[in-house]
């Protein structure tokens, strides 16, 4: 991901950041009950080393918002990792994009 994922005009999240990958998964982390410091630690330890990119922020979404779009979560076997994938996206590209647009409109962008 790059700087384009946050819209410069209003600081909102671009829908592209939530589009599932080729395997139909959007990678997320559960942050319920974590302090801000712990949330950013997840990024430092589990996201940056893999992505090899500079972190500029995060986008928070309520799980209910995801469920309400008929999507689901697939948590990793290792629950301690707090990692999960958003799954069960529609097959049609235009519907996936529409849901991503809808989710992005509900996301709260938090810059680091």
């Amino acid at each position: 991901m790059d700087e384009d994922d946050i819209r410069p005009s209003d600081g909102s999240l671009r829908w592209r950041a939530l589009i599932p990958n080729r395997e139909g998964k959007t990678s997320v982390f559960r942050i319920s009950g974590l302090s801000e410091q712990q949330v950013w630690s997840i990024a430092e330890e589990k996201v940056i080393p893999i992505r090899n990119k500079r972190l500029v922020g995060r986008a928070d979404l309520l799980a209910a918002v995801v469920y309400n779009r008929n999507l689901n979560f697939s948590p990793d076997v290792d629950a301690a990792s707090r990692h999960a994938d958003i799954i069960e996206w529609p097959d049609e590209k235009e519907k996936r994009r529409l849901i991503a647009m809808d989710l992005a409109s509900e996301a709260k962008v938090i810059r680091r």
């Binding site: 790059d2 997320v28 982390f29 942050i31 997840i42 309520l62 996301a107």
Partner: peptide, 15 residues
Amino acid sequence: MSTVAFTQHSSIGLF
């Protein structure tokens, strides 16, 4: 439950 997706800024290979 809350979820979070980390948004990143490309620092290399942008072009």
